[in-house]
Computed example of a mutant assay.
Amino acid sequence: MAAAAAGGGSGPGGPAVPLRSGRSIPVLGLGTSHQGGYSHDAVVHALQKCGIRHIDTAKRYGCESLLQKAIKESGVKREDLWITTKLWHSDYGYENTKKACLESCERLGVDYLDLYLIHWPDAHVPGKSNREVRAETWTAMEELYEEGLCRSIGVSNFLISHLEQLKEDCVVTPHVNQAEYHPFQRPQELVDYCRSRGIVFEGYCPLAKGEALTHPSVIQLAKKYGKTPAQICIRWSIQNGIVTIPKSTKAERIEENCKVFDFTIAEDDVEILNGLHDGRHVSWDPSLIV
């Protein structure tokens, strides 16, 4: 996917990939998390010094209101930012989804979300099937999209079976599916399915929570290209056409993670990295969710 590698357009935050919603999502973002804490200074640094304009968060991470402070302090205008947050399963269902979206906007200090995602395919609602709850929830997401409160909508950790059900039950195809993606977890069948339906695939955990950084093949390629193992993994992900959101709470690591647009990994070396796939998850495994 050369368009994603080079960018289907470019904004202040670097290359961007067009979505079916008519918006373009920056191909590189900054992930946030409830694990490993939260660094206000790192987010401000990413926005002010690294040109990051794409921030990915979620209600579950508990840092939406902290991000509001960091964004304000950075001085970056709202219209120059891409803000993604996610709906946690405790808020699934039609009415709850509408309410949760407004609450996330309030915590983030914004009037709209660039992208709102259903975080996980398992609904945990007694007496109702996951499919039923996902359809109800997605109907509310469709309305939030039509109203402009969410400029784009999508899902996270959804497999082909979950996307097929949504296709049968609802009207709007998700604009994005965000899932785990790194050299050991390269779900190519899911990526191909998403592309065939115009769903942009976004990958989290591009460094496999650090596991990929010590793999001999990654280290060897880092030496060959004069880059760090992290830069190799992120560049590989982007060259495979994946919107990529590495996480870090350290300013120097974020700077390193952003310096991935000044080199290209040769096709043979991309294939070496593609060949590392062994199906392992370093995050959640959605394959048991019906």
Rank of each mutant, 00 (worst) to 15 (best):
R253M: 05
A140D: 02
K77S: 15
M141W: 00
N96L: 05
T244W: 00
K59T: 14
V133H: 01
Q188S: 12
L276E: 05
A16W: 07
W284T: 11
H277W: 08
E168R: 04
G36V: 08
K98T: 08
T137P: 02
Y145Q: 11
H175Q: 04
A6W: 01
R186I: 14
L276W: 01
D122P: 00
I254R: 11
T214E: 11
H281G: 08
V27D: 07
E142R: 07
G226H: 10
P174I: 10
E142Q: 08
G9L: 08
V155D: 12
Y181W: 12
G13P: 07
G93C: 07
T249H: 09
Q165E: 15
G109P: 03
Q231G: 04
L144F: 02
T249R: 09
K247E: 01
G31Q: 02
V76L: 03
N257I: 00
W82R: 14
L117R: 07
M1W: 13
G154W: 02
S129G: 10
K59D: 09
A123Q: 11
S65Y: 06
R134N: 07
N240Q: 09
H277Q: 08
E142A: 03
C50I: 00
L67M: 04
Y193S: 10
C150H: 08
Y181T: 04
W138M: 11
H89K: 05
P229N: 13
E79V: 00
S248Q: 06
V200T: 10
T85P: 06
E79P: 01
Y204I: 05
P286A: 07
G7M: 07
I242H: 03
A230G: 13
I242M: 11
S39V: 03
I254L: 06
Y94P: 06
K209Q: 13
P121I: 05
V176G: 10
C233I: 04
R151Y: 06
T244E: 05
P229Q: 12
T57F: 01
I83F: 10
